[in-house]
Simulated scan of single mutants.
Amino acid sequence: MRRLYRKKALSLVKELDAFPKVPESYVETTATGGTVSLIAFTAMALLAFFEFFVYRDTWMKYEYEVDKDFSSKLRINIDITVAMKCQHVGADILDLAETMITSNGIQYEPVSRSLSILLHTNRLWTLLLIQNRLREEHSLQEVLYKSVLKGAPTALPPREGTASEPLTGFHQCIAAYNFSHRIDHLSFGEEIPGIINPLDGTEKITSNHNEMFQYFITVVPTKLHTSKVSADTHQFSVTERERVINHAAGSHGVSGIFMKYDTSSLMVTVSEQHMPLWQFLVRLCGIIGGIFSTTGMIHGFVGFCFDIVCCRFKLGPYKPREVVLPDPHVNNCAAPLLTDNHVQE
């Protein structure tokens, strides 16, 4: 009974076989089929090779949520060069009520025309080129996120020279003022080497001694998680404005460089994503199976069309063959052979 049950089970399994085997004697190979197979195998190899590079690549995922951190302090990192002497320059940090928060932690250093400054100038020109490309190619920002800690810090090192006291009163001659400036570095939060901020390398030159430069900045808290670094930093967007102060023409205000920033209520989480191994294997199987099935259908369809054309115009294997028929006027009966007995008679 057990053997009978096993035979029935095996016969049932054989009937469910979705991959029936065809004897090799029933299979006919052709040159066109071999050519199509060669093309299919080449396409499989190339697509599998490129798919491996896609598997190794990563992409950045952006998630947005409400910023619930109200207790942390915002750190401001700034390095700016102004075309005036240090004793004519002063800097303060004010809140919305125009109350001074602090003026400590700001160092004033004279600019020296040394070789290191010339090297920094070349570096700033490179920053300007990158900034122009970032305005056109927004995907370059993801490349910068992936390459953090590979490049040099964007903030310039301390300059050589002695620090000077800032200006505490505005009793100097207006002709001594020149607010032409270059923002070497401006960032918020933790400094991350390799990240280029929107105002890094920005340069403004004016010949007017009574010019107002305004930068309206929106700071967005950002958490960066990549394979190389995990840090809490801040992105920001900026709108620039500049105008000449002329009270006679109705353009009122105070000349200087003003940076007004506001913190966004949204927080952005930027994380580096990688394709899982199972998804890579599924895509690889899809490539191989898809090419194999598609080339088989194309080969069968082309062969079907070829047979129709040949049958319609009597070409190739459908060309009529000439058949030689026997002539009825010719006696095809052969004369009987004479044997030795007939000769003797």
Rank of each mutant, 00 (worst) to 15 (best):
M1D: 04
M1E: 05
R2E: 08
R2D: 06
R3E: 07
R3G: 06
L4S: 04
K7I: 08
K7F: 07
A9C: 04
L10M: 10
K14W: 02
D17N: 15
S25V: 11
S25I: 09
Y26K: 13
V27T: 09
E28Q: 14
E28W: 09
T30K: 06
V36P: 07
F41Y: 13
A43I: 09
A45N: 10
A45L: 12
A45R: 09
A45H: 07
L47S: 05
F49D: 05
F50G: 05
E51I: 05
F53E: 11
R56N: 14
R56V: 11
D57M: 12
K61H: 09
Y64Q: 07
K73M: 11
I76R: 07
N77S: 01
D79W: 02
I80N: 02
K85A: 13
D92A: 14
I93R: 07
E98S: 11
S103T: 13
N104M: 12
Q107V: 15
E109C: 15
S112Q: 15
S112G: 15
I117Y: 15
L118C: 12
H120V: 13
N122S: 11
W125T: 09
L128Q: 15
Q131N: 09
L134K: 12
R135L: 10
L144R: 14
Y145S: 01
G151W: 10
P158V: 10
R159L: 15
E160R: 15
A163D: 13
A163F: 15
P166D: 03
L167C: 14
H171G: 08
Q172G: 12
C173Q: 14
N178P: 04
N178W: 07
F179Y: 13
H185R: 03
G189T: 01
G189I: 00
E191C: 01
I195P: 00
I196T: 04
H209D: 09
N210T: 08
N210D: 12
E211L: 09
E211K: 14
Q214P: 02
H225C: 02
T226K: 00
K228V: 08
H234E: 05
Q235T: 03
F236C: 00
V238N: 03
E240I: 08
E240G: 00
V244R: 11
N246L: 01
A248D: 05
G250R: 07
H252W: 10
G256P: 01
I257N: 06
K260C: 11
K260H: 15
D262C: 12
T263C: 14
S264Q: 03
S264A: 14
S265C: 08
L266K: 11
L266M: 11
V268S: 03
V268C: 03
V270Y: 00
V270N: 01
W278T: 06
F280E: 05
F280P: 04
L281N: 06
V282F: 06
C285D: 07
C285H: 08
G289D: 01
G290I: 05
I291L: 08
I291G: 00
F292S: 10
S293Y: 10
M297E: 06
I298K: 01
H299L: 03
F304C: 05
C305D: 02
I308W: 06
V309Y: 04
V309W: 05
C311H: 12
R312Q: 07
L315I: 05
P317L: 13
Y318L: 01
Y318K: 08
R321P: 02
V324L: 11
L325K: 12
L325S: 08
N331K: 03
N332H: 12
C333A: 10
A335L: 07
A335M: 06
L338M: 04
T339E: 04
V343C: 06
